[in-house]
């Protein structure tokens, strides 16, 4: 599970379209599944659900899946079985005979997800797959994504819903203005942690002492967050507080949320307004 994060306009969808061969890069090269961009044999193993997904709305759900299945080169009973299996998976068996024009946004998203999974792909690109869905719809999509991962499918998730990414991804990269800023593993145990302190005061000497162990964020309200590389330094932070003659009122060790990481990486200047 790979998360592709960045603010609006960072070039997430553009990158994804290039990887799918929908647009040609102006410069540079890339490979997908070991094949050059746009290669048809690679595309046979790729599923894709675009952000503003639209399908032929005059087709029924079943017809749409059959049409896309045939374009994947599937046919006959194996295709029909696969369609039935996927319709059951995304909970659309009853609506399969209805035209897409009458589907709700959530139903379209689900049938779109089924479309992306038709050819048992090795890699699936999902562009904002849960935007505009209600919590139940989101949960279903999240479950389907987890199942894909369990089946060994690599999932490339484009999203700015950080909670979504945090809940599903193993690895994320942050992009801004068309460039990758940094890459991070979300499953790594030795990943940096945030140690939050509540202290009686924040004299400069204390901040300096804490700064020796990591990046310090102090809000002047007696709350200090120190991002450190290893949770093992926690006792040393406590000693530093006490050593500076400041009261230590509370101390919590936790992993920084993806939102904190995101804001750190993007820089505060990227906040709109």
């Amino acid at each position: 599970m790979f998360g592709f994060l960045g603010p609006n306009g960072a070039g997430k969808t553009t990158s994804l379209k290039m990887l799918l061969g929908l647009i040609a890069p102006t410069a540079g090269q890339a490979e997908v599944l070991g094949r050059p961009l746009g290669d048809r044999s690679a595309r046979a193993k790729i599923g894709f659900l675009p952000e503003h997904f639209r399908f032929h709305d005059w087709m029924t759900g079943h017809e749409m899946l059959r049409f896309h299945g045939r374009l994947f080169g599937l046919s006959g009973p194996p295709l029909e079985w696969r369609i039935r299996e996927l319709l059951k998976r995304v909970d659309l068996v009853d609506a399969a005979g209805r035209r897409l024009a009458g589907y709700s946004k959530g139903m379209l998203q689900r049938v779109g997800l089924a479309q992306a999974m038709l050819a048992r792909p090795e890699l699936v690109f999902l562009d904002e797959p849960t935007s505009g869905l209600d919590p139940l719809g989101r949960l279903l999509v999240r479950d389907v994504i987890r199942e894909m991962r369990a089946d060994g499918t690599a999932v490339f998730l484009n999203s700015h819903l950080l909670g979504e990414v945090e809940a599903t991804c193993d690895r994320v990269v942050f992009v801004k203005a068309g460039r990758v800023l940094t890459e991070r593993r979300l499953d790594a145990r030795d990943e940096s942690v945030a140690i939050e302190l509540r202290v009686g005061g924040t004299p400069p000497a204390l901040l300096q002492a804490l700064g020796a162990h990591g990046t310090v964020h102090a809000d002047g309200d007696g709350r200090v967050r120190v991002d450190v590389a290893d949770a093992a330094v926690a006792p040393e932070l406590a000693r530093a507080v006490v050593g500076a003659g400041v009261d230590l009122r509370a101390m919590t060790v936790r992993r920084p949320t993806l939102e904190e990481v995101f804001l750190d990486v993007m820089g505060q200047d990227s906040r709109p307004g």
């Binding site: 379209k17 799918l20 061969g21 929908l22 048809r40 044999s41 595309r43 046979a44 790729i46 894709f48 659900l49 675009p50 503003h52 997904f53 639209r54 399908f55 032929h56 896309h68 374009l71 994947f72 080169g73 779109g112 479309q115």
Partner: peptide, 14 residues
């Protein structure tokens, strides 16, 4: 214009 083409053209077809 509607974007229908995106899913169609990303299939393994010329």
């Amino acid at each position: 214009a509607s974007g229908v083409m995106q899913t169609v053209a990303s299939k393994p077809i010329h």
